[in-house]
C-alpha cells in the first residue's frame, strides 16, 4: 500500500489509530445496517474483524512483521473477539446460532454447509499435519539475546572501567566538567528530522571551527565514525551501511528506539571495545562480527565515537540519577 504511507516517527500510533478507525467504521456501518434490518450477525462480524486484523498486519505494515509476532497478535485478537461475542448471554446466543443452525441442518442450505464442513475440516487438519511433517530447508529460528547483560567491569587498554559508575570523559561543558544536561541541550532534535538546533552557533554545530568542549569532541567522534564504522552501520547510523547486507544479522540500527537509546553509555563503550568476540556466554549465539575496536582505537577515541552516535541519533544515554 503506497498511497497511504507510514509516517516516520508516528508509525506506532498510526498503526493503532488505523486499526481503531477501521473497526469503528465497521461497527458504525453494521449498526446502521442493523437499524435498517440488514445487520451482519455477530458470528460473521467477529470473523470479518479478525480476518481484517490479520490481513492488515500481514500486508499493511512494512517491513513485514515476523510470523511469531503476527501469531501473538492474531491469538490476542481472537481472545478479545471471543470476550466480545460471549460478554453477555444474549450476545453469546446470537454468536452460537449460525453454528448450531449448521450442526442441526435446519435447512437444505445449512445441511449442504454441514457436509462441506465435515469434508473440509478433516482435510484441512490432515493437510496441516502433512505439511508439518515435510522437511524444511529454512534456517532455524534463533532466539537471540540482543542486549546481553554486561560485566560489572571491563578492562580496556589496561584500565578497568566500572560500568555502573563510569562516565564519558568527553561529555563536558565549556569549563571541561562532566555535564550531562549541557550535552543534552546540544543534541540534535530527532523528531524534527534530525536537525541541529542552530547551524551557525559553534555551541551547537560540531563542524564549526570554533566549536569547543562537548561539541568539538562530537566532531572528533564523527570523524572516527566515518573512518571506521559507517561502512557497516551506515552514514545515517541506521544499520544500512555499504557492507551491511553481507552480514546476518545486519548491523545494529542506532536510530531505533530499541538499541543505544535503551542503554547506558558505558554499555555501548563495552560493546564497541570488545566487539562480537567479547560477547559473554549469555550473548548466544554470538551472532556479531563486529571487531573488538580496542585493538584499533584508543580509549578516548571509543568514548568520542560513542558520544557521536548519541548526538547524531538524538537519543540520550540511559542514566540512573
Amino acid at each position: 500500500m503506497t498511497w497511504l504511507k507510514l509516517v516516520e516517527g508516528y508509525m506506532p500510533m498510526q498503526m493503532i489509530s488505523e486499526l481503531a478507525l477501521s473497526v469503528l467504521i465497521f461497527c458504525l456501518v453494521n449498526w446502521t445496517l442493523k437499524r435498517a434490518g440488514m445487520g451482519i450477525s455477530s458470528f460473521w462480524a467477529a470473523i470479518g474483524i479478525w480476518a481484517f486484523i490479520v490481513t492488515y498486519l500481514t500486508y499493511r505494515i512494512y517491513p513485514p512483521i515476523p510470523f511469531s509476532v503476527r501469531a501473538i497478535y492474531g491469538t490476542v485478537s481472537a481472545c478479545g473477539l471471543f470476550m466480545w461475542v460471549s460478554g453477555s448471554q444474549g450476545a453469546w446466543e446470537e454468536f452460537k446460532r449460525p453454528i448450531f443452525n449448521v450442526m442441526d441442518g435446519i435447512s437444505g442450505f445449512h445441511k449442504a454447509i454441514r457436509v462441506v464442513a465435515l469434508i473440509l475440516i478433516p482435510l484441512g487438519l490432515g493437510g496441516f499435519a502433512f505439511k508439518s511433517f515435510l522437511p524444511s530447508f529454512e534456517e532455524p529460528i534463533e532466539l537471540r539475546t540482543v542486549h546481553p547483560a554486561p560485566p560489572a567491569t571491563t578492562k580496556v587498554h589496561g584500565k578497568t572501567f566500572v560500568l555502573q559508575t563510569s562516565a564519558n570523559p568527553f561529555r563536558v561543558n565549556k569549563e571541561g566538567k562532566y555535564d550531562q544536561a549541557f550535552s543534552n541541550e546540544r543534541i540534535v532534535e530527532q523528531s524534527m528530522g534530525r536537525l541541529m538546533k542552530d547551524v551557525n552557533d559553534p555551541n551547537f554545530n560540531p563542524w564549526d571551527p570554533n566549536a569547543e568542549g562537548y561539541t568539538k569532541y562530537v566532531r572528533e567522534g564523527g570523524e572516527i565514525f566515518y573512518q571506521n564504522c559507517h561502512f557497516c552501520h551506515g552514514d545515517n547510523l541506521n544499520g544500512r551501511g555499504l557492507w551491511a547486507y553481507a552480514f546476518n544479522p545486519i548491523p545494529a540500527n542506532f536510530t531505533d528506539a530499541g538499541t543505544i537509546a535503551q542503554l547506558q553509555e558505558t554499555f555501548v563503550f563495552w560493546r564497541v571495545s570488545k566487539g562480537g568476540i567479547g560477547l559473554p556466554g549469555e550473548g548466544f549465539p554470538w551472532a556479531s562480527v563486529m571487531p573488538p575496536w580496542e585493538q584499533h582505537l584508543t580509549v578516548d577515541e571509543i568514548w568520542k565515537v560513542v558520544m557521536f552516535e548519541y548526538w547524531h541519533t538524538g537519543y540520550y544515554p540511559r542514566t540512573w540519577d
Binding site: 507510514l6 516516520e8 508509525m11 506506532p12 498503526m15 505494515i61 517491513p63 513485514p64 512483521i65 515476523p66 510470523f67 509476532v69 529454512e138 534456517e139 532455524p140 529460528i141 534463533e142 537471540r144 540482543v146 544499520g239 544500512r240 547486507y245 546476518n248 544479522p249 545486519i250 545494529a252 540500527n253 531505533d256 528506539a257 530499541g258 538499541t259
Partner: peptide
C-alpha cells in the same frame, strides 16, 4: 527466522 530478520532489515521492527 534469519530470512524474516533480513526482510525486516534489522533486529528491531521500525513500527
Amino acid at each position: 527466522t534469519p530470512a524474516e530478520l533480513k526482510a525486516m532489515g534489522g533486529q528491531q521492527h521500525p513500527v
